[in-house]
């Protein structure tokens, strides 16, 4: 056990615990706040593995932008203080979610264990320069296609928000 092992275990445990709280809490906004804890400690995991750029971008994008957007959407629609039961899912759905989650975890775990077993692997390749070389070298096409996909999503969102859909009278809420 090195210091890195200990730190990684701590960050991972916090991340998993906060994620469980995020999906199980009865307080709607608390669930978004637990998501912050979970995502931040996940970036701690990246940091321990030496990928400081990935860790910081994780903080910048997920905590600084996406959770802010989630909180904004919650405040704009409904953000009750205290326990709320109106957004609870049915028991069947919960059981199904549990099964799917457990199956995914089992699949990932079995793949990782069968691939690496108990071998010791040196982790190197998280550095910013190497990451940039990989991203804009061998992975440049997937990267560009992804950005095109995001652009299409952006234009589509704008179209949905700005263009009137259906007859004009309906869009204004005035019956003809």
């Amino acid at each position: 056990m090195t210091t890195y092992d200990v730190l990684f275990t701590i960050a991972g445990t916090i991340s998993v615990a906060a994620a469980l709280l995020a999906v199980s809490t009865k307080h709607l906004v608390h669930s978004a706040l637990w998501l912050i804890v979970s995502l931040a400690s996940l970036s701690g995991c990246y940091l321990v593995l030496g990928a400081e750029f990935v860790a910081l971008v994780q903080l910048l994008v997920y905590v600084g932008a996406i959770v802010v957007l989630v909180l904004f959407a919650l405040m704009l629609t409904r953000a009750p203080i205290g326990r709320s039961a109106e957004h609870d899912t049915s028991r069947v759905q919960r059981a199904a979610a549990l099964v799917v989650g457990a199956a995914t975890a089992a699949l990932l775990a079995s793949v990782l264990i069968s691939a690496f077993g108990n071998d010791k692997k040196r982790v190197n390749g998280g550095g910013t320069h190497l990451l940039a070389a990989r991203l804009f070298g061998s992975w440049v096409w997937p990267f560009e296609v992804l950005s095109a996909l995001l652009l299409v999503a952006l234009v589509a969102a704008l179209a949905l928000a700005r263009l009137p859909i259906g007859p004009r009278g309906d869009a204004d809420g005035v019956p003809r």
Partner: peptide
Amino acid sequence: GSLVWLLAIGGIGTL
């Protein structure tokens, strides 16, 4: 990556 660090941490502060 101190520049990214600063931007990321600044975003957390406003939370």
